[in-house]
């Protein structure tokens, strides 16, 4: 698995290099002050790759720790004698791979499926909604998904680089999301005796929307998978810094580390051919930690 993942990334780098060398032929050797006709980024999708991987992308990811805060709180066992001991020694190097593995096994197949066919986004969203069986986790996913959809509609879709077809691709999805059945169904019906409770048709979860938006902006499937998982790693590292686990230099060291790259490649390889019907939780305790985030007396994060 490790070799396969590495090879794929190297292959992408190779492709990048060849396009660079071929386009250099067209540049004029004379120095000019006017912008060169050669684009700095050969592939227009790279522009969007940078945009989607930017931590300043207003998804509100900073508000979520994906169970890290709960993991830290559960490490400490409080005995009746009020002296506390550790059930396990909390460590970010243990938590990060587990969290990434869990995130990849539960959501990456959905992002990849939406990337393959953005037209299926609504259907995938409904299946994912049935698969996230944890109140805290679904809130986090929906909050970021809705934010991404707004960014797409208000900022990305109107861009001149987006084709008219791509611009319209998620229109149907948004219409269903904003229809009254999506907002009221479920809550009111449960009160009435005898009325069957059916969930809203779509909820705007992050993973399928991310896959669809990445596709519409021209990102390749592997790039999409990499950015999707890497963003999760960045959000976790940033949460760890704010939770006081380590400082910003250590944070960048983890993100720059070779271990993380190998792990991301391995996880992408593992989930590459998994269809959404077979997406599953690979770290069962993660559901417990995330689900019990509400039990924390004081919290700095929403998940």
């Amino acid at each position: 698995m490790t070799c396969g993942g590495k090879a794929a990334i190297e292959h992408q780098e190779q492709v990048g290099k060849t396009t660079e060398s071929s386009s250099q032929d067209t540049t004029s050797p004379t120095l000019t002050l006017t912008p060169s006709s050669t684009p700095l980024l050969q592939d227009p999708s790279h522009h969007y790759l940078l945009l989607l991987s930017d931590s300043a992308l207003p998804l509100g990811s900073f508000a979520f720790s994906s169970g890290l805060e709960s993991y830290l709180a559960h490490a400490r066992r409080t005995t009746p004698s009020s002296s506390s001991q550790y059930l396990y020694k909390p460590s970010f190097t243990s938590f990060l791979p587990l969290s990434l593995s869990s995130y990849a096994s539960t959501t990456l197949p959905f992002a990849l499926a939406a990337h393959r066919d953005p037209g299926l986004t609504a259907e995938l969203d409904d299946i994912l909604d049935a698969s996230i069986i944890c109140a805290v986790g679904r809130r986090a996913s929906i909050a970021q998904g809705r934010a991404l959809l707004s960014i797409w509609e208000k900022s990305l879709a109107p861009s001149s680089a987006v084709s008219a077809d791509a611009r319209r691709a998620l229109e149907g999805y948004s219409a269903v999301l904003r229809s009254p059945s999506s907002t009221t169904a479920g809550q009111n019906a449960s009160e009435e005796e005898g009325e069957e409770v059916l969930p809203p048709p779509v909820s705007a979860h992050l993973a399928p929307l991310f896959g669809a938006v990445a596709r519409l902006l021209g990102l390749a499937a592997r790039q999409t998978a990499y950015v999707f998982l890497f963003s999760h790693a960045k959000a976790l590292v940033s949460a760890a810094v704010r939770a006081g686990m380590f400082g910003p230099y250590q944070a960048q060291k983890i993100l720059a580390g070779g271990e993380l790259r190998v792990l991301l490649a391995d996880l992408i390889e593992r989930e590459w051919n998994v269809d959404v019907e077979h997406a599953a939780q690979s770290v069962p305790v993660m559901d417990l930690w995330i689900g019990r985030h509400e039990m924390l007396y004081s919290r700095i994060f929403n998940s």
């Binding site: 559960h74 996230i132 109140a135 409770v197 969930p199 019990r292």
Partner: peptide, 12 residues
């Protein structure tokens, strides 16, 4: 017994 549990209302 270090029993951890959570309960959630999910789609009915």
């Amino acid at each position: 017994s270090n029993l951890l549990w959570s309960a959630a209302s999910v789609r009915g």
